[in-house]
Design a protein around this nucleic acid. Structure first.
Length: 481
RNA sequence: CGGGGCGUAGCGCAGUCUGGUUAGCGCACUUGACUGGGGGUCAAGGGGCCGAAGGUUCGAAUCCUUUCGCCCCGACCA
């Protein structure tokens, strides 16, 4: 029995345990313990977040958004200004009541999201239609005192990006909502290799204070859904609550139309649960902080200096082509390093020893391939770039296949209940009558929720599987995280 | 808040039921030698307020009371 078998729990037995093991062994994060419900993101985990940040930030900038920063503490009265918002967030607020050695006149809440304080400043920044649209993004931490937390998926404090925009008319705001939703979907597919369903949240699942919330939903390896990103049409709700007005071309005074949209460190959880296997983390090359781990082999008959020198040269050659390489010269045995890099999800491992030097080659092992093979040093970088590219698309198609294989259309509620009777989950496309009562009944009886009213797929009409009332299109049900 | 686990070395745990040498094991760590192509071997070391506070006792990791915290499963949510 190998050590790895002792350490990693097969996902079939206990998915949750497997997930935590991958995080721990991949050295991504650990529970903060001393801070309830929070986690410490370790360097390797944070490096993945930085890759995500950079990619998204480029996309935001390319669509005309600017980064800004707003305070972490929000006057309690701000939160109370929008009725639905306060109702939705009150239960999970952390509140600062004392500072400077005395009780504060008005408590501050630690931001759970920044619509309110940004609304306050928008009202000062916006005066004319010429100031619109105002397209702002903030990279920040937020805090929500959740009842139950899970590493990366739901932590007391988490890192995210929240976009906040103001527009002169509803139509333009709606376009922004969909534009950003599409950017999220594109990022999920092209960078994370994680296919998603875009859709509209039901009224009971929407953001507190929004008119409508859109989302991208991804399927994890156990068939459960993960809400991976959201984009909200806030209408004039916050505009009215914070008096964000502008003078139109015609001279009238109007409230702005706002949007907000965000993705969080939850994406890392999604990444883990989408691709990883029983050997640990698997990262899509585009988001892997280390794309190539080069392991030198020093042994009997090896000229250590020559191997080191050759290794440096190989690493430099790859870096020149934009490949991120770690030349791992630490004083550990090669086998130890192999396992470590594998658990950290490094896409490609190279081994370089005297034998290889003699043959002008390295040994190459892909993270998800079986064996290893020799690769000549001539044109190595191009070889690797091609492989990384292939791995990226390979991961996406594997995830897409899993999504397709676990997606079904269902017309009878009996069949529906059967699917969700055990611990398993699938994406079930079924007709629903559009009422909150039916939605609640289904959730109560099966634990499955409406993930979204999908934008994709056919829009054929039908009859609700529960009540038989008419339905204009199928909606997506699943158990979720 | 309900249900279930658990706090003993950096990590993972045994010991607790049935109190009794100097509190133990694996991994990790340090030093040295041999090693080195899939988690090395041998030898020698370092590291503990047994979660906290009270109590019972000649004697407490162990029994009693109180308390703090963590993890997992539900209800709430990105």
């Amino acid at each position: 029995m190998s050590k790895k078998a002792e350490r990693i729990t097969p996902r079939s037995e206990d998915y949750s345990r497997w997930y935590l093991d991958v995080i721990r062994q991949g050295s991504l994060a650990e529970p903060a313990e001393v801070v309830k419900g929070c986690m410490v993101i370790k360097p390797h985990g944070y490096a993945i977040w930085e890759k995500i940040q950079r990619a998204l930030d480029d996309m935001f900038k390319a669509t005309g958004h600017q980064n800004a920063y707003f305070p972490m503490l929000i006057p309690e009265s701000f939160i109370k200004k929008e009725a639905e918002h306060v109702e939705g967030f009150s239960p999970e607020l952390a509140v600062v009541t004392h500072a400077g050695g005395k009780e504060l006149d008005e408590p501050y809440v630690v931001r759970p999201t920044s619509e309110t304080i940004i609304g306050h400043f928008f009202s000062r920044w916006i005066e004319s239609y010429r100031d619109l649209p105002l397209l702002i993004n903030q990279w920040a931490n937020v805090m929500r005192w959740e009842l139950r937390t899970r590493m990366f998926l739901r932590t007391g404090e988490f890192l995210w990006q929240e976009g906040h925009t103001a527009h002169s008319n509803h139509e333009e705001a709606k376009q922004e909502v969909i534009r950003m939703l599409n950017i999220y979907a594109k990022f999920a597919q092209e960078w994370m290799a994680m296919p998603v369903i875009r859709g509209l949240k039901t009224q009971s699942e929407k953001f507190a204070g929004a008119l409508e919330s859109y989302c991208i939903e991804a399927m994890m390896q156990d068939g459960k859904a993960l809400q991976a990103g959201t984009s909200h049409d806030l209408g004039q709700n916050f505009g009215k609550a914070f008096d964000v007005k502008f003078q139109s071309k015609q001279g009238s005074t109007e409230y702005v139309w706002q949007t907000s949209w965000g993705v969080s460190t939850r994406l890392i959880g999604g990444l883990i649960m989408t691709h990883s296997d029983d050997n640990g983390l698997v990262l899509p090359p585009k988001l892997a902080p280390v794309q190539v781990a080069l392991v030198p082999i020093f042994g009997k008959g090896a000229d250590e200096g020559a191997v080191k020198e050759a290794g440096e040269k190989v690493a430099a050659g790859l870096r020149e082509k934009g490949i991120s390489v770690v030349f791992d010269t630490r004083e550990y045995k090669p086998g130890f390093k192999y396992f470590e890099w594998e658990q950290k999800g490094v896409p490609i491992r190279l081994e370089l020893g005297q034998r290889d030097l003699d043959k002008n080659q390295v040994m190459l092992k892909e993270r998800i391939a079986q064996g290893k093979e020799p690769a000549t040093l001539d044109g190595l970088a191009d070889n690797i770039l091609e492989r990384l590219d292939k791995m990226q698309t390979g991961l996406l198609s594997a995830a897409q296949k899993r999504l397709d294989d676990n997606t079904v259309e269902v017309d009878s509620y009996d069949d529906f209940r059967e699917i969700f009777s055990g611990a398993e989950s699938k994406f079930v496309w079924a007709h629903w009558d559009g009422t909150m009562e039916t939605e609640a009944k289904i959730k109560e009886e099966t634990k499955a929720t409406i993930r979204c009213i999908p934008l994709e797929g056919s829009k054929e009409a039908g009859r609700c599987m529960v009540t038989g009332a008419p339905s204009t299109q199928r909606v997506v049900f699943a158990k979720s995280y």
